[in-house]
């Protein structure tokens, strides 16, 4: 088989393992502000490829805890970086996957997250107040994983997401913003966690999502834009939550994702022939899992974590992926 038809699991595992070994590389240090997110992306991709043990558990947990910002009560992306809701969600996701939530002071993290909710109901990323529906999703996801959703003002949270809904069924980053597949994912997944999918216009949104597929099989994030592997996940996760995955051509999408692999050094890029990164590697593998690619582990599209982890916590929602193929 050629790289266009097969997922190169051993190469991708080796690629992810190599990411922590580039400390003499400028790019490694220039991306320190994404380190915790990158570890979550790498770990989740490994779990989906059934290679969770490829990264050392204790070392990983130790690193997560070294990113704790004691002044703010949340996690930064790297030791000595400021707490932010994006890094805080990544930290919680890693600790949940590694079954190590007992290491953190849950009431303090909950307090930090809740302190970021604005009067309008949206969440800010940190104390400086940039708002985005992405941050609402981070808050809802994190509180749910911590078992503390009961402390959230659900009505207020939902009201803001509702105000970001557009006529095309999609959602934007803030009130008035254009629909974007990434924002659709965060809004739909947040509503799924809150059991409020009645807020979504299922038929219109599933139509808009299905229209993201381009003739080459890839998916774009907005009308009349180019395809990109990361949208594969955002569009697919929203479609699986709406139980409409069959509305696009899954074979063509699988081929597109597989063609964006680096057949020599591993990893997946945004599109064929581009430089790979761990972000697109996760979202490529995650999308293939939802498409029933043989040999992969089930991914939960709502939390973007291994499905077994979410099921064990009793948090599974009624999404639907394609049946796993045997070959």
């Amino acid at each position: 088989m050629t790289s266009d038809s097969e997922l190169l699991v051993p190469l991708h595992v080796a690629y992810i393992k190599s990411l922590g070994e580039n400390k003499d590389d400028l790019v490694y240090h220039m991306t320190a502000h994404l380190r915790l997110n990158a570890i979550y992306w790498g770990l989740t991709a490994l779990c989906i490829m059934n290679q969770k043990e490829a990264l050392d558990r204790e070392e990983m947990i130790g690193f997560v805890m070294s990113c704790w910002d004691d002044e703010a009560g949340g996690f930064g992306a790297h030791p000595d970086h400021d707490a932010h809701i994006l890094a805080t969600l990544s930290a919680i996701q890693i600790l949940v996957i590694q079954d190590a939530l007992d290491r953190i002071d849950i009431p303090r993290v909950v307090k930090f997250i809740l302190s970021l909710q604005q009067p309008s109901g949206v969440f800010a990323g940190d104390s400086f107040g940039e708002v985005d529906t992405r941050f609402s999703y981070c808050a809802v996801n994190a509180l749910s994983l911590l078992g503390k959703l009961s402390e959230l003002d659900v009505e207020k949270t939902v009201a803001y997401i509702r105000s970001c809904k557009n006529f095309d069924g999609g959602f934007g980053a803030c009130i008035g913003a254009e629909s974007h597949a990434g924002q659709v994912f965060v809004c739909v997944a947040a509503l799924a966690i809150l059991d409020r999918l009645d807020e979504v216009d299922h038929e219109t949104l599933a139509w808009w999502l299905a229209e993201r597929q381009l003739p080459n099989g890839g998916l774009n994030g907005r009308p009349e834009k180019l395809e990109d592997v990361c949208y594969s996940f955002w569009v697919l996760s929203a479609l699986s939550i709406l139980q409409k995955l069959s509305w696009i051509d899954s074979d063509k999408l699988s081929s597109f994702i597989l063609s964006a692999q680096d057949p020599d050094s591993g990893g997946i890029a945004d599109r064929p022939g581009d430089m790979v990164d761990v972000f697109h590697t996760l979202f490529g593998v995650a999308a293939l899992s939802l498409l029933g690619y043989p040999g992969l582990v089930d991914l939960d599209p709502v939390y973007c974590m291994p499905a077994s982890v979410i099921e064990a916590k009793g948090l599974r929602k009624s999404w639907q992926a394609l049946e796993r193929r045997s070959k």
Partner: peptide, 23 residues
């Protein structure tokens, strides 16, 4: 990384780049 073309470099070229980057 969005829209950055993949280039294949020899091990020597890669080492040279890293060395140049050290400062």
């Amino acid at each position: 990384m969005h829209g950055v073309k993949r280039t294949r470099q020899s091990r020597e070229a890669e080492e040279a780049r890293k060395l140049k980057e050290q400062a």
